[in-house]
């Protein structure tokens, strides 16, 4: 039995071609507890699907056609942003994710590259994106999120460095507060002082890593950009 069935995050995916849609579906469903419940090939269709299915998240390709005209010719292949905004404006439409760039998705055997992941450009870097976290964090006014697809050979180094520095700052801060609290009791000074010193050291190391990564931003972000 699927443990996530009851609480699965419901997603609708919209892209013009079935191949690209399949790859976006595979990409989205890599995250545990995420289930694609509907697909659409044009803007009119995705807005209708979002109204009926009421997904928590709708993932949209920017070059989505408005609709298909006579003989199946796609009309106005630039409706991705409009569709994302319409879905997000619906009271029960949930959040919309506009994929800025779907080019890195490979077409080889229609199988998704193992390293491919959703990411978001923040503070000058591409950072991995979790739909579940995003849904919890996003403010009501921030319901159209601009994301990207990373399909590099290896995850960029700065992802790891930034994650490490964040962890050091959080845990260092907690250790520092705990250490200071223990020192206030006077009896536990022997335990509190090294704990506070360790926490302070972790914070300084975390800040130093952040500083180094930011200094290298130009070269690292070029390295970390998804390929054109």
């Amino acid at each position: 039995m699927d443990k996530t069935k009851g609480t699965a995050l419901r997603v609708v995916v919209a892209s013009e071609t079935p191949e690209l849609r399949d790859q976006i579906v595979q990409l989205v469903e890599r995250e545990p507890g995420v289930k694609v419940v509907g697909q659409a090939s044009n803007a009119i269709e995705v807005i209708a699907r979002a109204k009926i299915l009421k997904p928590e998240v709708t993932v949209v390709d920017p070059y989505l056609p408005y609709q298909f005209g006579l003989d199946g010719i796609p009309l106005s292949r630039m409706s991705g942003l409009d569709a994302a905004m319409s879905v997000a404006e619906e009271p029960a439409g949930g959040m919309a994710i506009l994929l800025s760039n779907v080019n890195p998705l490979p077409s080889r055997d229609n199988r998704l590259e193992a390293s491919a992941e959703l990411c978001r450009y923040a503070e000058g870097f591409y950072v991995p994106l979790s739909l579940r976290h995003l849904q919890l964090e996003a403010a009501p006014m921030d319901r159209v999120v601009f994301a990207d697809v990373w399909a590099g050979e290896t995850p960029p180094l700065h992802h790891k460095a930034l994650t490490l520095s964040d962890n050091l700052l959080v845990w260092g801060g907690l250790a520092l507060v705990a250490g200071l609290a223990l020192m206030l009791t006077l009896i536990m000074v022997i335990v509190g002082a090294p704990l506070a010193a360790g926490g302070l050291f972790a914070i300084l190391v975390g800040l130093a890593i952040k500083g180094v990564v930011r200094c290298l931003r130009g070269s690292v972000s070029r390295e970390g950009e998804p390929p054109e």
Binding site: P62, Y63, S76, M78, G80, L81, D82, M85, N101
Partner: peptide
């Protein structure tokens, strides 16, 4: 990068609706 140029559609005289992309 990539920039979408959008225009408000007129729902009724004096009342603007959502934005529509007219060019990228």
């Amino acid at each position: 990068g990539k920039v979408a140029l959008q225009m408000h559609r007129l729902v009724e005289p004096g009342q603007l609706g959502g934005r529509v992309t007219v060019d990228i």
